[in-house]
């Protein structure tokens, strides 16, 4: 199966109204703020939730998209921006990749406005989790945030380590 465009994948999967998703997410953020009180703690928890979602959603993404192994981190970052985030395996966010460093292990994903992009720490965890399942350990940090007065949303994705393939089972000897 050849890789399919984000649009084609999206039309073939079950969907729900984005407002239900956004409002539910908003309710989660509100509960976390009430419970944890510290903004830092809330961010940590959101990141963890995103991670948990990412490590599961990547399975469906791979199954439905027909994407095979990406040759390098560059291709992977492109895939995140064009197919995984948009159109909406997850969020319906339009994103582009820029600011590569010299050895191609660190880049920025710039997100255009989307109604779902509010208080979006869940997103950094999501990308980290999804990538970990395809053997890439990354560090994802927010560098720009429209809600803080910046002109765009920007995530820096840094490749820490490519983990060698490990099988959960032992080969028969």
């Amino acid at each position: 199966m050849a890789p399919r465009s984000g649009d084609a994948i999206f039309s073939s999967i079950d969907r729900v109204n984005a407002e239900l998703f956004t409002l539910t997410y908003g309710a989660i953020v509100r509960q976390l703020l009430t419970d944890l009180e510290e903004v830092e703690e809330v961010n940590k928890q959101l990141d963890q939730m995103g991670y948990n979602i990412g490590i599961r959603l990547i399975d469906e993404f791979l199954a439905k998209s027909g994407v095979s192994r990406c040759v390098d981190f560059k291709e992977t970052a492109d895939m995140i921006a064009k197919v995984l985030l948009f159109p909406p395996m997850f969020l319906g966010v339009t994103a582009s990749v820029s600011s590569w460093d010299a050895d191609g292990t660190c880049c920025s994903i710039v997100l255009e406005d989307s109604p779902l992009l509010y208080y979006c720490n869940v997103l950094s965890g999501f990308i980290r989790g999804a990538l970990e399942m395809v053997s890439m350990k990354t560090e994802v940090t927010w560098t720009r945030d429209v809600l803080r007065g910046d002109d765009a949303y920007e995530l820096q994705v840094k490749l820490l380590k490519q983990v060698a393939e490990e099988y959960p089972y032992k080969d028969d000897e």
């Binding site: 079950d14 729900v16 984005a18 998703f21 539910t24 989660i28 939730m49 959603l57 469906e60």
Partner: peptide, 16 residues
């Protein structure tokens, strides 16, 4: 009219 994938919602709800 915007939509997201059902699994994205299902996983988010499960996190909740």
């Amino acid at each position: 009219k915007q939509e997201v994938s059902l699994s994205a919602f299902a996983f988010l709800f499960s996190e909740l």
